[in-house]
Amino acid sequence: MTKPLISIEALARRYPKHGGGETTVFQDVWLPIRKGEFVCLIGHSGCGKTTILNVLAGLDQPSAGVVIVDGREISGPSLDRAVIFQGHSLLPWMTVMQNVAFAVTSRRPDWRKDKVRAHCQKYIDVVHLTGSEHKKPAELSGGMKQRVGIARALAIEPKMLLMDEPFSALDALTRGSLQDEVRRICTATEQTVFMITHDIDEAMLLADRIVLMTNGPEAKIAEIVENTLPKDRQRTDIHKHANYYALRNHLLDFLVTRSKTFASEIGAKGYDPRHPPVVRPGAKPTAVETEPPKAASA
C-alpha cells in the first residue's frame, strides 16, 4: 500500500472545564488519507468535526497526537492547505480577479503580474465565472461568491483542500450545482479533499470514503464507509444505482441510532482505534441471483 499523503495519528482535543478538570471532545483519532482521495466526515454537533478540520488547517493545536502531511508534521497554517469555509470570506473591496490574485501572489511572490493574471483566469474559468472578473463581492450572488472561494483555494494548488460545510447556506439548486462543479474539478485535478458535512446525499455524491464519528464528548471514529457507487456517478441519476439505498440507509441508521449506541458496541466487539471498522454497503443479491443453477434435463 502506498504511503498516505495525510496521516492523522492519535489525535485528541481537550478543553478545561469550569471548576476544574477537562472535557475531551474527541480522542484517539487515526485516519490516513491517500493522494487524490475525497474524504467526508459526518457526525452530530459536538463530536469535534470542525476542530479536526482546524487542526488539519493549522488553525488549532491538538491536545495529543499529530497530523503529518507529505512527511512533515503540521505546526501552523500553510499555503499547502487551502480552506473553504461556510462563508465566502472574500475581501469586499477587491474584485473577483483581485481576490484570487491575492492568494496566488502569496503563494508565488516571484511571479510576474501577467503570469498571475493568466493563472487566476484559468481557475475563474474553471468555476464558470468568466465575465465576472471585475465584479466585487457585493455584485455577486451567494453561489457566485462561493465559486470565487473555490477558485481562490484551487488557484494556490494546495496539497490538501479543506472544506467546512461550504454549501450549507445556499439554496438547494445552487448547492446542487456547486456540488457538481466540485466533483468535476476534483476528479479532473485529482485534488485531495477533506470535507465536513451533515448532508448524507452530499457525502454519497462527493466522497470516496465517508468517516462516521460517534457522539461527543469523547468522540471517536466509529467506522469508515467506502462509497460503493460508481466513480462516474451523477447527481441526477445516483438514486437509480442498485447500491444507493443500501449505502444511504447505512449512513442514516448510524446517524439516527448507532452513533448513540456505539460505545456499547465497542464493549461487545472490541475496538482498535488505529484500524476502525471498514464497511462497503451494497445491495443484497436477489433470490434469482442467489438461486443455484438447475441441472439440465436429460
Rank of each mutant, 00 (worst) to 15 (best):
M1F: 09
M1G: 14
M1R: 11
E9C: 05
E9T: 13
P16E: 04
G21Y: 03
T23L: 14
T23H: 02
F26T: 03
L31D: 02
L31K: 03
K35E: 15
E37G: 04
E37N: 12
G46K: 12
G48L: 04
K49T: 08
N54Y: 06
V55N: 02
A57Y: 03
L59I: 05
D60L: 13
G65L: 07
V67H: 02
I68V: 15
D70Q: 02
D80F: 00
R81S: 04
G87E: 15
S89V: 03
S89A: 15
S89W: 05
M94L: 15
V96D: 07
V96W: 01
Q98C: 04
F102Q: 09
V104H: 04
T105S: 14
P109D: 07
K113M: 04
D114C: 01
D114Q: 13
R117Y: 04
A118C: 06
H119K: 11
Q121I: 08
Y123A: 01
D125S: 12
L129N: 06
S132Q: 13
K135H: 13
K135V: 01
P137K: 14
A138P: 03
E139L: 12
E139N: 15
G142W: 06
G143F: 13
K145A: 07
Q146L: 10
Q146V: 11
Q146R: 13
V148S: 09
G149N: 08
A153F: 07
L154H: 07
E157D: 14
L161I: 10
L161P: 03
L161T: 10
D164Q: 10
A172Q: 15
L173E: 12
T174C: 10
G176C: 07
G176V: 09
L178Y: 11
Q179N: 14
I185D: 07
E190K: 14
E190C: 09
V211A: 09
L212C: 15
L212F: 10
L212I: 05
T214K: 13
N215V: 10
G216I: 12
A219M: 08
K220L: 12
A222D: 08
L229K: 04
P230C: 08
D232Y: 00
Q234F: 07
N249T: 14
L251K: 09
L252K: 02
F254R: 03
K260C: 03
A263P: 01
G267H: 11
G270C: 11
P273F: 11
P276G: 12
V279P: 10
G282V: 03
K284P: 00
T286K: 09
T286Q: 11
T290A: 14
P292E: 11
A298H: 10
